[in-house]
Design a protein around this nucleic acid. Structure first.
Length: 332
DNA sequence: CTAGGATCCTGTCAGC
DNA sequence: TGCTGACAGGATCCTA
């Protein structure tokens, strides 16, 4: 289990959608009483623009989470690679701080409560906390910590924005101007709203770029990251080093179908919630083991043809591929 | 206009 | 054992 928390999955579309769905229970219709910023670049805007405002909606576009407030402002949140959002009710923090629990939930889940000590059962924990994003020990431990960048304080609980690598950010926007925000304005369609013909047209426009690079381009299609790009290409039997222009319309259609299927399955499984990803012993859960066909499966047999999955480098990214059934196609 | 490489950042891990 | 460098990667910036 070496490096378990540095090999966690990156928040991609399904992850952000999971957050959107899970956070509502805790912050919808609640007032942001105070904002604490520990890393200036992680919060673009003024805290006064959100303090005192009530959360009235949670939306998502691609990998961006949009938190609508009742004062015509919207907070756009992008987790990039290692961002996390953890809402924790104060009662849990108090238990941690007072030493009644030293690690959230771990003891409870493992069922080995020290004599006379209060522990959270798993259900109790889920009742008082929502944690998602790049999976790590932060989900279980005392907060804030050195990776905490921004804290939104509500009555009875706090939302922690943690980010190991400091690439994620929150940005305050005018709600009516969200669509004009550069990232949102240029973003491609959501996979389910796109047709194969549209994606094919984009592949033709970027015909000499590698198909994997095109799928990772948020201007082409919204929400795919390294995991789902690899999984979509495997589904379609297309090699990631193919030039985008060499794919037939049928192949592009299949890639899109794969993207929709794997991401729908991921969302329905609950994304990377704490439940899915962190086992009682602190190792990662089985989400990737269960759903991924190729991602981080190098050295194991291809589930389709039995050939050994290999890891290569494409478009500057670690890329997982079956060298036998992901075809290079004609003339490539 | 497009394609591709460098960049940001922290923490892990292989290799010496 | 302790240090060093490679690696992880989303989006943006820069160059050709």
């Amino acid at each position: 289990m070496a490096g378990w928390y540095n090999r966690g999955i990156m928040p991609e579309l399904p992850e952000v959608e999971t957050i959107r769905r899970g956070l509502g229970k805790f912050i919808l219709n609640k007032k942001i009483e105070r904002v604490g910023v520990d890393f200036a670049r992680a919060f673009i805007g003024k805290v006064e623009e959100v303090e005192g405002a009530k959360v009235v909606g949670l939306r998502r576009r691609g990998k961006a989470l949009l938190v609508d407030l009742d004062n015509e402002k919207t907070v756009m949140i992008h987790l990039r690679m290692t961002g996390q959002l953890i809402y924790r009710e104060d009662v849990l923090s108090e238990d941690l701080l007072s030493g009644r629990m030293d690690t959230l939930g771990v003891v409870g889940i493992a069922g080995k409560a020290p004599e006379g000590e209060r522990t959270a059962t798993y259900n109790e924990l889920m009742e008082h906390q929502f944690a998602a994003g790049h999976p790590s020990k932060n989900f279980m431990e005392n907060l804030p910590n050195t990776q905490t960048r921004v804290i939104f304080e509500f009555a009875g609980g706090r939302l922690f924005f943690n980010d190991q690598r400091k690439f994620g950010f929150m940005k305050v926007l005018e709600t009516e101007a969200v669509e004009q925000e550069k990232f949102i304005a240029e973003l491609g369609k959501e996979p389910w709203e796109m047709t194969g013909a549209e994606l094919y047209e984009k592949c033709q426009r970027h015909k000499s770029a590698l198909i994997k690079a095109v799928l990772l381009d948020q201007k082409v299609i919204a929400g795919l990251g390294n995991i789902y790009a690899d999984e979509s290409l495997f589904y379609a039997g297309v090699h990631p080093m193919r030039r985008a222009g060499s794919l037939s319309e049928e192949e592009v259609q299949k890639v899109l179908e794969g993207a929709c299927k794997v991401m729908t399955a991921s969302i329905e499984s609950g994304g990377s919630t704490m439940a899915t990803y962190v086992r009682p012993d602190g190792t990662t859960g089985d989400y990737l083991e269960k759903f991924a066909q190729v991602f981080r499966k190098e050295g194991t047999p291809c589930p389709r043809c039995g050939e050994t999955i290999v890891k290569i480098r494409v478009a500057g990214r670690g890329t997982h591929v079956c060298p036998a059934c992901q075809t290079h196609g004609e003339g490539v």
